[in-house]
Simulated assay, not measured.
Amino acid sequence: MTTAPQPPLSSRPDLRLRLAPRSGMPRPIDGAWWPRSYDLLAELPSLLSGLPRAWGHVTSVTVNGATWPAAPGRMLVSNQVVRLHRALAASAPHTVVLLAPGRGRWDLLVVPPDTTDEAAEPLMAAAASDDV
């Protein structure tokens, strides 16, 4: 029995990101991000700089307000303003939503920073799977 190779984590060793293959069909989750902390100001620049260029410039990021501590309403990333929003919806406590005008919306599963390698790997793989 052969198994399909898993998409690799980002080539940046400090960024733990796995993205699903792009297709014409919308997906509920476009991949997974495993930050090292819940410090959005420290984690977000690495995430945004590690995204594919085809995604364009992400201008808006929405995180769950119950999961992430308060952050300013905007921040400068690579000399561009990114607006930060905190949603209080209980339906998606472990997601981050990225918006790039004219390019699209991407929803990423957020693997909690304190998750072990053994527990994080299947979550990351499932979020990036072609089977979603």
Rank of each mutant, 00 (worst) to 15 (best):
T2H: 07
E43M: 02
V63E: 00
R12Q: 10
S60Y: 01
P93F: 08
L9V: 13
G24Q: 09
V96K: 04
P72I: 15
P7F: 09
R16D: 01
P112Q: 01
P8K: 09
V61Y: 09
D30P: 02
V111K: 01
L48F: 13
M75W: 01
G24H: 10
T2P: 02
P28G: 14
L76H: 13
L41W: 00
D130T: 04
A87H: 10
A89M: 05
T67M: 11
A126C: 04
T59L: 12
V63R: 04
L99Q: 10
D114C: 06
Q6W: 06
P45C: 05
G50C: 02
A89E: 12
P7V: 14
R36H: 14
R36Q: 15
S11E: 15
R86Y: 03
A42F: 13
G50K: 00
L84N: 02
A71M: 07
L76I: 15
Q80A: 12
P13M: 01
P35R: 02
P112A: 01
W55N: 05
H57R: 13
A90S: 08
Q80F: 03
A128M: 05
D14I: 06
D130Y: 13
M75G: 03
L99F: 09
G73H: 02
P122F: 12
L48Q: 11
T95A: 14
H85P: 01
L17R: 01
P69V: 06
L123R: 11
P5W: 00
T62A: 09
R22E: 15
Y38G: 00
L123I: 08
W55Q: 14
V61I: 05
A66W: 10
R53E: 15
N64C: 09
S11R: 15
P69E: 05
A92K: 10
